[in-house]
Amino acid sequence: MTDSLAGDSSGAVFGGPDNFAGGKVISLATKRLLQDVPRPDAGDAVLRDVVSGAPFDGAVTGFVLSCLPDSEAPVLWVSDRMARRENGRLYGPALAQFGFRGQVLRVEVSHPRDVLWAMEEGAACAGLSAVVGEIHGAPEVLSFTATKRLALRSEQAGVPVWLIRSGDHGALSAARERWRISSLASDTHPWNAAAPGAPVWEAELFRARGRAPGTWEARHEPATGGRAHRLGLLSRSGDGQVAQDREPAADLAR
């Protein structure tokens, strides 16, 4: 179940007349499926919005941590007072569980205005591996224009920016990808059936630029021999292609 497509760069085999000349036939369903699996952990520098499906849910934080680039450069983590009060502070000792190796530079301010300012400053700084901001609710300063500024800054400097929004569902945003994350029942614990196991989240991409939205079952995959830690996504879109999802290479060879 935990196989993922996130790390396979299979974009090159699609499209173009060469493939047809070679006699490869690709079913549309497979193509759609493969292309549509987003790769948020690739670290490309855009602004992404993550909203929480339920209040007081740690899934959002876990999802963002799994997507951060595998780097020792510091991460700027900005939060406003309401977000800290609602969801608690980020707890440093637990970050290593999600494969996080760098340092967290915390900026803990009270007003969302300062959060946005600090995020903008951070997004312009190429020495950071990522910028994460947390804002609770829908304050007026978090307007479409503010998110647009963040998005442009991020793309200019090449720093991925994540905006975690809790307690807000429908506000406008210029983010290139918008995710909604909620917890699912966790995996079975390997030794104790009564205990919760590894966390599983439902990741819904409800708005994205140049990509179809979808829903996936997401989990953090720890680093194993030679492969960095990453986010595993498993389709839940309901088009019944899970079998192909698992064996994309075999499917293509047909």
């Binding site: 969801n87 502070r89 000792p93």
Partner: peptide
Amino acid sequence: LVKERPLRLLE
């Protein structure tokens, strides 16, 4: 870490 710890801590 010795034991699993939560990602967010209420203070």
